[in-house]
Design a protein around this nucleic acid. Structure first.
Lengths: 234, 234
DNA sequence: TCTCCTTTTAACCTTACATTAACAAAAATG
DNA sequence: CATTTTTGTTAATGTAAGGTTAAAAGGAGA
């Protein structure tokens, strides 16, 4: 399915190797963001959600370990793979210390890298998300459970939401009574901001409005040229 | 949890290397059982509970992969590390397919091995919290005993479940009323996530639904693109 | 070998989703 | 006020995922 491609942040300063690796990963159905150095890597990391980070150790200005430490401060869960130039024991040990999930010595076999990526991402997937609270929203008389993807009105029969309906409503709920910029939804949910995705989003707004009609206190307002606002009147 | 020493099963046919490695691990506070070949390895595995298996790939009579497969049939969770003589890509890939957690190329640095052991055992420990050793479930009017692989309706005649039926239902039961991601079942039970294993899983869902029809309060719901949900209506 | 049991693969069908088109209605622009 | 841009809404289309049954393939034991 298109929108569940795993996202990889690749930080590698060697432009040749970097682009080749990026292309190779993309050919294997990963969505890859390539940063050319540690700084850029951290900037890109903050901007997006990634399923995996692949960091070159040897980089000017900011090496892979330092970057990994910064990443760990932001996110304790995201898997990290280090690329080390040679079998430097200290590097490997240091890597594990920063919370690496694996490391690979250059030159490495690309298929092996793929295997590792697969194994690591799958491993993370098996770690169950226990804090359900994060997925539950109250919207007027509605309960939205965005993990199980349903919307329930006053404890009645829950209505199933499609992935896009669900994500959009969740994003609106996160900004309840506040502006939810079009651009935000388009980049976060559709991952692309163009005429068609924009129209697609409008279609979904219409669908959500239909669901939410049951509670006349709840409505989605448009702010022309800006975005939408989910309001709950009291 | 346990302040107990972690137990390692080491299967290595080279007597010199084997004993040295065993001693080294014991010096680092692991309890090590050393088997000299695949047969012996499997015998010892059946007799005891281990926290980790370290298997040499190249062994007479029964190689490490075959042994791993047998071990996996008994225990889907125990971490496995392979020792491969050289960087054989096929070996590495085959290892991952059997559910290896990692591999090391001989000769390897002993400290690196220690690091890996630590990381893997640590990882499993956190995983096991949510995925506790539980084998008996009440599902509506059903009793599932996943150790003996049977499902009983209201104390009647138990129905025997096949291994896959059993594991799948168990996984669903562990997540009762919650999402059981497709990916989770595929990686945990099928150890591979592709079109065919996915379809195979759907077939098993159909089988389970047939069994569960006896109790109209119990159903397996699908969450499109995400997974399944075993719900028990009250 | 021939069973029996389990699992995978195939086939066919249904449902779920996302996108695009089409046209209507507001809102902005100038 | 005429025109362009943005949004509202419904419907049509194409594709992917899931439901179900049956046949084929594998595998262990007799």
């Amino acid at each position: 399915m298109e929108d569940q491609k795993k996202r990889i942040l690749l930080v590698e300063d060697d432009p040749n190797f970097g682009t080749v690796l990026k292309d190779y990963l993309m050919m294997n159905d990963y969505e890859v963001t390539h940063a050319k150095n540690g700084m850029e890597g951290f900037e890109k990391f903050k901007k997006d959600d990634f399923d995996l980070c692949i960091l070159d150790v040897m980089m000017p200005y900011k090496d892979g370990f330092t970057l990994a430490k910064e990443i760990r401060e932001k996110n304790t869960d995201v898997p990290i793979i280090f690329l080390t130039a040679k079998t430097m024991k200290e590097d490997v040990l240091r890597g594990y210390k920063v919370g690496a999930d694996d490391y690979l010595n250059k030159p490495f076999d690309s298929e092996v890298l793929l295997m590792k990526i697969k194994a690591i991402i799958q491993r993370k997937a098996t770690e169950t998300i226990s804090d359900s609270k994060q997925f539950e929203f109250k919207i007027g008389s509605f309960d939205l459970n965005s993990k199980l993807r349903f919307l329930r009105f006053k404890g009645g029969e829950p209505v199933k939401l499609s992935p896009k309906e669900n994500e959009l409503l969740r994003l609106l709920a996160l900004h309840e009574n506040d502006l939810m910029p079009r651009e935000l939804a388009l980049t976060k949910i559709w991952r692309d901001d163009n005429y068609f995705t924009s129209r697609s989003m409008d279609v979904y707004i219409a669908k959500l409005r239909k669901y939410l009609k049951l509670d006349e206190k709840v409505e989605i307002l448009n702010i022309h040229g800006e975005g939408f606002r989910l309001v709950v009147n009291t």
